[in-house]
Design a protein around this nucleic acid. Sequence first.
DNA 1: TAAGATTTGTTCGTATGTATC
DNA 2: GGATACATACGAACAAATCTT
Lengths: 253, 253
Amino acid sequence: MASDPNIAAQPRRSRPVRVADQIKDWVVERDLKTGARLPNEAEMIAEFGVSKGTVREAMRILEAQGLVVTRTGPGGGSFVGEVTAERAKSLLANYFYFQELSIADIYQMRKVLEPELAASLAGNLSEAQLNTLLDLAARYDAPARNAEEERDQHVVSLSFHAQLAEFGDNRLLGFTVAFMARILTDLTVYRRLYEPHNEELWSRGRRSQLDLVEALRVGDAKAARDIMRGHMESAEKMMQGQEAQVLRRFMAV
Amino acid sequence: MASDPNIAAQPRRSRPVRVADQIKDWVVERDLKTGARLPNEAEMIAEFGVSKGTVREAMRILEAQGLVVTRTGPGGGSFVGEVTAERAKSLLANYFYFQELSIADIYQMRKVLEPELAASLAGNLSEAQLNTLLDLAARYDAPARNAEEERDQHVVSLSFHAQLAEFGDNRLLGFTVAFMARILTDLTVYRRLYEPHNEELWSRGRRSQLDLVEALRVGDAKAARDIMRGHMESAEKMMQGQEAQVLRRFMAV
DNA sequence: TAAGATTTGTTCGTATGTATC
DNA sequence: GGATACATACGAACAAATCTT
């Protein structure tokens, strides 16, 4: 109910922050849903007894967290805005900007989560969903001819996994898998020049995605898990071989 | 380098968010570290050619994301502020406020991640760290006598897992495990009145934590993994029996 | 302790932009 | 196109916090 679970003595909260907290409480108390209308500026000024500037700063705080959206014009105003997965990923990425994440760290999680996700999807996907996956796999049916093409294939390959994550019912698992795909997408790859393109690894990776879709179609959870586990192990090897590093940057919200 | 990876046509960005983005770019370009000083209000007004109110709204946006902190007085101003794990958890929790998370969802992930974490810690903890874990375990060495005590034990038990998460080197794995512990801590438990306290489950849970610490001490990764897996399975059963539901609320940042 | 300097915090009045009718 | 109802942005003044002397 309250917006502050740990009521530890804060250093001091500025007025805009306190107003933002009050609005959060206001929303939770009334159990307002996405799209519900909030009081307009003038009403908030009266309600909280603060100036326009303070109200506006409070709204920017809530907007930055994705909790409200604002529109100008007649019928405009502020509305409860659902936090999108995209925004949540960006905000979380900002945290890891300050952390040292290695390829090994990411793959330690991918190696257990992706197989788990694959197994839980086996037999639960529609024909349309399976075809969506095949379409993505088809977008790199030829070996990359240069570094740029290889990077493109890498990105598409990751969107295959992100798509898989969206198909599941478990929003927590789906979000986590999609977030890792996003981190890997924003990767700077320092490829060693003398490191040749490994065609055998590429064809194994492609093969495993097709096999995976087939296992999902026939509902073979164990096969899906095993295929994905093997795929993750090769993928990690490839990344390590390319001495990939996680790119440090802030994400737009 | 840029703060906007997907340059898709946005509906329109207000001046404060554009200023906030410019400041982010400014920080990334110069590779400013935590604590580095940002230009003061007057300088930003001159630099970006906007009013004081706009600059302040931009700062509130960055503050809400934990990217800057601001202090008043001489020597005050705005500084690059590391996003804390606490804040990241709060922001992420706001996303799941709008999602329907079940106990089963959370435990599908816990059952694979916690054993993985335990295994990776085996043999890598100092005596002091092991003792910290034992201290936490000692805080519920007697069966709960009522619902309130049981809830307290639940919270302390989760802090055991959160502590474990902090001891690891993998920040991604650690954050994810700690985040799940936090969600479970903010749980509303609707215990069925006719459901008696299950003392056997309690003693098994306590036993497994002590066994786990021992396995970690002697460096037996396989035992640590197995113990944790069993512990997770009992914990899920207990939660399901209590018809626990994930509490919906906004988190303070 | 007290005064002064520095920087953010807050208010108010006014004007402009934007979308709907 | 004009009227209306909103948010958006500016500028000047004053308040509060905090550091130094």
